[in-house]
Design a protein around this nucleic acid. Sequence first.
DNA 1: CGAGTTTGACCGGCGC
DNA 2: GCGCCGGTCAAACTCG
Length: 329
Amino acid sequence: MSEEFREFYYHQPFHDDDQRRNAAATFPYSGSHSSTYNTGTVSSFSDDHSSFHNNLQMFDPSQLSFTEFLHGSGDYNSFSETFSGVKEEQKAAVEAVGGGETPATPNSSISSSSTEAAPGDVEYSNKGKKDSQVKETLEHGEDTSKKEVKGKKKGEKKERQPRFAFMTKSEVDHLEDGYRWRKYGQKAVKNSPYPRSYYRCTTQKCPVKKHVERSFQDPSIVITTYEGQHNHHIPATLRGNVAGMFTPSMLNTSLEGGAGPSFPQELLLQMPHLYTYGGGGGGSGGTVNNLYHHQQTFGNTTNQHQLQQFADYGLLQDVIPPVFPKQEP
DNA sequence: CGAGTTTGACCGGCGC
DNA sequence: GCGCCGGTCAAACTCG
């Protein structure tokens, strides 16, 4: 376990259903990368982060695996840099992102934010469009939707979707999660030799975006940030290639109407999905050992129930107890 | 030929 | 006001 993870925090054992549901959004994540790599776990936070703030505690490397996450619409870049253990002032900046809700205890210096969360309210703008291009579209009377968007956005503050970030140890940058993504940009990341890639869900009208970058402190770690929530199910074509898909419905029996009012569904809809490595047409089973992380991260009875829940759905039937990498003291 | 990627330009927000 | 930076656009390109 590298030094950087000492800055991580995680949930305490659950005390109520909300916490439990949030943890239910925790998901093992397996990508199309080498199965020898362990993928990470994620602890999820609802937008009601005041509650989870109260349940944060100092990361204990002996208990956690290597992945933690942050949820919110705050400055995830700051968070990722902070998580890379870069600068003290940057850490402070991340603390600030949490607003006044951040407990004063030294054990909870990192927090998330969701100050601008507005699920389901997504707009695309043409702010990046060249002036000449905008002019052209105006002259030709086309692209009215974008015009409207632009006009609408004029004077309106752009609203951010809730974000959900997590770190995954993987060789590949873009982890498969069951959805189809189209890359729409790439930018160099400040203080990092690794670029950040921007992806958008290719399903029509789906507002979800994700950003993927690699930790420059530990290049084996990929930081993925989801923004928005899918308004559709996983593409059927992908379902077919994905064995043992870990779907939201497995955690929350009804996507359409069964969700409680207090959230989890929101994040569940954003969840990447566990699957065994299929490798674009014919792979065999693969990494499921991240479930072990799951267990390790939430080593308490409630999460044992979660594991049992997975098992109930047959997700663990192929799980081979992993040889978990010995963590450094 | 359609879908996805690359890449330079551009925009808005923000700090100074 | 200016410069920096994150985020987005879209033409050009690649790939299957």
